[in-house]
Design a protein around this nucleic acid. Sequence first.
RNA 1: GGCCCCGUCGUCCAGUGGCCCAGGACGCCGGCCUUUCAAGCCGGAAACGCCGGUUCGAAUCCGGUCGGGGCUGCCA
Length: 473
Amino acid sequence: MTVRVRIAPSPTGLLHVGNARTALFNWLFARNRGGTFIVRIDDTDRERSTPEYERDILDSLRWLGLDWDEGVEVGGPHGTYRQSDRFDRYRELAHRLVAEGHAYHDPRTPDELEELRARARAEGRHPGTYIRRPSQQARTGPIRLSIPQDRPIRFDDLVRGEVVFDPASVDDFVILRSDGTPTYHLASTVDDIDFAITHVARGEDLLPSTPKHIVLAEALGARPPAYAHLPLLLGPDGKLLSKRHGATAVSAYREQGYLPEAMFNYLALLGWSPGGDVTIFSREEAIGAFDLGKVSKHPAVFDPAKLEWMNGEYLRAMSTDEFLRRAFPYVETAVGRALTGDEKRAIATIGLLVQERVKTLAEVADQVGFLLGEPDYDPGSWQKVMTGDHVPTVLDEALRRLERLEPFDHRHVEETLRAMLDQLGLGARKGLQPIRVAVTGSSISPPLFESIAALGRDRTLERIRRARRRLGG
RNA sequence: GGCCCCGUCGUCCAGUGGCCCAGGACGCCGGCCUUUCAAGCCGGAAACGCCGGUUCGAAUCCGGUCGGGGCUGCCA
């Protein structure tokens, strides 16, 4: 039987890296097995679902390169792949389950239910123990599935092995709300059956829901899919990764200049590895080696520092042409306008030097900003570098030498500035840093000689004079 | 509280009875290189939670214990 897997995000927020990792593992599994990867939108929560979030989720998935074979926006034999379009189907099945005796209308009030839960707790039992079919039959109220109490519920989890639940610890849960809308459990289980899903790989947080889904599927006359519960992603404090830990949206990393291939690689390594000492690997290598059975059982801490390092690795591994092509849009966003051809060419002359010093594409703008407009002096840099007695002399001498330098390329700039160092008896640090600050505004910049050449004679002289004036005297 | 899951360096991963006084990566520390910042190179500190078993032999198997996490809703 050919593998059919799905991810079913709820459009109630941006695509979270944890969900992206779940999507990634499903995608890898499908690609490894020559199966079908499906994207379904679980928007049963009409209140919180928005088209904007759905857009972000789909864009982020595509950005990561997780293309889907069936589902929302690409179509397929199962309708729109959006649960909000299938409410009639869920309702019909819920009522059928009542008619067949598998489910019942629950007439109790929230207070009554709360009392049952409190009683179970007080007795040291599972809170759902007494949420069972009441003696009197009702025609209204939410519909609950009846959990048979005569046998344990067991299944073989692809990553955890056999898991067994005592039915007493599984409450009769609501499948259809009193307003006639389905709960997640119903909609998800019905869709998995209707769409012929063979494997459900999802976060471990859904593990306690799995016995419910199994009983539901069987009550519907279907064979449940195989399950794989993936380890959760944690923040540095060991708690479930969430916004309070910082950026968790895939699109946020995209905006910060992370590469999809780096994010892909990093996410794949959270809870899985192709084996051995391999840390950096391609999409194809991941597909070839992927196996749900080799996914680890314990949660993983999401470490932005390692992601950043990995992004730098990918940045340095690409050609400088490609690096520039991908960096320009980030620079344009940062300066708020399109770059001119001259500016792009100027940036390109120091492209390699920038490429080996940045960890994200967004940082490129910081590195090349001095080429795109008059920089402000960084106060700390000025204080540290421009207050020495030798500085006016350095600037004057640099001006004198650069004014007539021909040709004005980085080799000649270096030659004449090094000669200046000798003449003034200054070390490189003391002699060159003032020029760097004068020209770039900061004590941190790409290598000086190339930067000066990229900037050109006129603007270089102009900036040194401006710094000189600021010094007075 | 109850149910379930999990437990190798700070973090991610390798390890499926002997190749392990535990390997790689990030981070950290030190050094080299060096015009700043990076990158690169070299070196270092750093873990099998604990206690019992099984075995000639255990990080690897079993039990217990401790610890962590998830769930516990007419959210998903």
